[in-house]
Computed example of a mutant assay.
Amino acid sequence: MTVRITVVGAALFDEGRLLAARRSAPPELAGRWELPGGKVEEGEAPEEALVRELREELGVHARAVGRVPGEWPLREPYVLRVWTAALEPGSPAPEPLQDHDELRWLGPEEVWDVDWLDQDVPAVRQALGHRPA
């Protein structure tokens, strides 16, 4: 039995806009867009991993708001699970600190203007249906 490793993705919303992050590495993913996040470490709750990853990758203080239903397979043994997230009051603006070279806030009419990673497309669709009011 293969142990699955959870990768958390953040559908980070602010003023109705979704944050997209452009990968800078590895070469096969560079230039494509994703929901920011990363692997859940052993003994870490997914929501804690989400908050940690957003702090490490973007330099922000955020909180997990709610789990987006579903999960999306990545390369074995990884699986993507997504949470909606929000910036904490007083958080610095996001910056691409690790793994990304550009960030973009996308309004509802712009969400599909970027070249999302294949596995992020269904996750983004599902997350948009769970956008916080």
Rank of each mutant, 00 (worst) to 15 (best):
T2L: 15
V7K: 03
G9Q: 11
A10Q: 06
A10S: 15
A11Y: 07
L12C: 04
F13W: 02
D14I: 05
G16I: 10
G16R: 10
L18P: 00
A20L: 02
R22F: 04
P26K: 04
P27M: 07
E28M: 09
E28V: 09
L29Y: 14
L29A: 08
G31H: 08
E34L: 11
L35N: 07
E44M: 13
A45L: 14
E47V: 13
R52L: 12
E57Y: 02
E57C: 06
L58P: 00
H61S: 07
R63I: 01
V65C: 03
G66F: 05
R67I: 00
V68D: 00
P69W: 12
P69D: 09
P69V: 11
E71Q: 12
W72L: 05
W72H: 03
L74G: 03
L74P: 04
R75S: 01
P77T: 06
V79T: 13
R81K: 14
W83D: 00
A85T: 01
A86E: 04
A86Y: 02
P89L: 05
P94Q: 11
L97W: 10
D99T: 12
D99W: 13
D99K: 12
D99F: 12
H100M: 01
D101G: 01
L103I: 11
L103E: 03
R104M: 10
L106F: 09
P108K: 06
E109G: 05
E109V: 04
E110G: 13
V111R: 03
W112E: 15
D113K: 08
D113Q: 12
V114R: 10
V114N: 11
D120H: 10
V124G: 02
V124W: 07
V124S: 02
Q126N: 08
A127M: 03
A127W: 05
A127R: 01
G129N: 11
R131N: 07
P132R: 08
A133K: 07
